[in-house]
Design a binder for these strands. Structure first.
Lengths: 274, 274
DNA sequence: CCACGGGTTCCCGGTGACCGGAAACCCGGG
DNA sequence: CCCGGGTTTCCGGTCACCGGGAACCCGTGG
């Protein structure tokens, strides 16, 4: 489970294809065939064939210059992930928050031992920006991360506290101290991080409550030189409350539109478009 | 090439796997095994195996109740699509636009004979909302669509004008009239649609200029009962100009970070994480 | 001019992964 | 208890996949 290698001796074709897709990341959004081969660990001839199939299936696109990139079809499929529900629902409130405070806003959900950035908004000004949607943040040294950690299941807490990696001189690496902070967070419903992840950047965050406990966190970022965050706290809490309310109201993570009775014959074969 | 059926006699395993993914759409974000089988047109046993592989590859996730949904991995991969570049770049300006006008904003790009919605923002109020990111809009009866159509290559124009489907009583179905409108759009850089797509909804849109011509369109939506759109035009034009400027400045759709010299040996094998 | 290197495409014989019908299993409802 | 829908497992035949290797393309520099 620790192996960073994604494609050692993948028996199944599907896994190999997945390995090809996995060759793409934030720093490599377009790759030529050879790069694809090297980064996926698959022989050139093999990846040539697989990539051709993926292009035919529209998951990849081959540009004029021969490089591959993620296709619109894959993009659209990704939008069907549950993360999108949360995003759509929260977006208006996040916008209000940006407008009201002028700070950069993060919406994150737990993802293993990390925090997955679902959305990041910042005004045209006021952007110490980084960490676009899709990025992962550590749990122990960001405000949003700490919120999630404070309400995370035991195993996750253990995994995280087992490796408190230092990011800056301010990163909390003492398990004791961290646990005290987590207690405080559970008590107050507010987490802080002062330059613990990046120098010059502070943040505050609050939990978002779903049907089963804390399912997300909303945070504000500010550079030390800009306006302080304290004044924004009421807005932050209000936004989180609104999102939680909408979340519960919409019964997310719930049964979902359950297939219609399907009276007649087979009835499911092929029908709707997006 | 015309067959609407996506998975009739797909030779390659990869295409079958793609067909499984294709079983998901906006109305079917979670599916159980049988639905997956029916919607993908593949035998139960086959889809059972393929889905298991996809789950292992993290493209799908199997929930506690046995249903499948799009996995976070796939979501993140999708974010690597070029559409995301445009979105990130445009987002701040779109927000300003929402704040300044109170209307709902659409950012779309051409996709075959349709318009692909890249982003849709609306204030907490003022939301006749529909058409989330990932949705496709027709080119002949929406403001954003007409903008793209006005600057689209010949074949696309032919395909679209060959089938001017009526959506409401106001839809323009006369090719002559449409062409006159397109001329006007090219002249003025502004497109309108008054209830041509949905009753009670009007829209205006302007083009966004990239390195090679018009690469996107930004539009405003308003219900008939709400405030008029005319007052918002200057803001709309300003936003589009800002996005165009950022787009050209960042040299998008351009070479992209070109692999570093790669001096030493093989050098590309395996390295970065998101 | 040709040699060279990196990327890409094509070929092809061997074999093991894939296929999918069928049967067993599970479970809630009547 | 049986029934029906969904899910999982089994298994032998065969065919699609595999990937080394060679040919091809093209810009570079000697």
């Amino acid at each position: 489970m620790r192996s960073p290698d994604v494609s050692p001796r993948s028996r199944s074709v599907t896994l190999r294809a997945t390995a090809v897709l996995g060759a793409f990341d934030a720093e490599h959004r377009t790759l030529n065939l050879s790069q694809l081969s090297r980064r996926s660990g698959l022989p050139l001839a093999t990846v040539h064939r697989l990539a051709a199939d993926l292009v035919e299936g529209q998951l990849l696109v081959r540009r004029g210059d021969g490089r591959y990139e993620i296709g619109a079809r894959l993009w659209r499929l990704g939008l069907l992930a549950p993360a999108t529900n949360l995003r759509e629902l929260a977006l208006p409130h996040l916008q209000d928050l940006v407008v009201a405070t002028g700070h950069t806003v993060h919406l994150v959900v737990p993802d293993g031992a990390g925090a997955l950035v679902i959305e990041r908004l910042s005004g045209t000004r006021s952007t110490p920006t980084r960490h676009n949607p899709g990025a992962r943040l550590p749990l122990h040294c960001t405000a949003v991360g700490k919120v999630l950690l404070a309400f995370a299941p035991g195993p996750v807490v253990e995994e995280v506290t087992g490796d408190l990696r230092r990011h800056t001189a301010y990163t909390v690496t003492d398990v004791r101290v961290l646990h005290r902070q987590l207690d405080e967070i559970r008590r107050t419903g507010l987490a802080r991080s002062a330059q613990e992840h990046r120098l010059g950047v502070s943040s505050v965050a609050v939990p978002v409550h779903g049907t089963d406990g804390v399912t997300a966190a909303i945070g504000l970022l500010a550079s030390l030189t800009g306006p302080r965050l304290t004044g924004a706290l009421p807005h932050l809490r209000a936004a989180a409350a609104s999102v939680s309310a909408d979340l519960l109201r919409s019964g997310l993570a719930a049964p979902s539109p359950e297939e219609p009775p399907a009276g007649g014959r087979g009835g499911d074969g092929k029908s709707s478009a997006q």
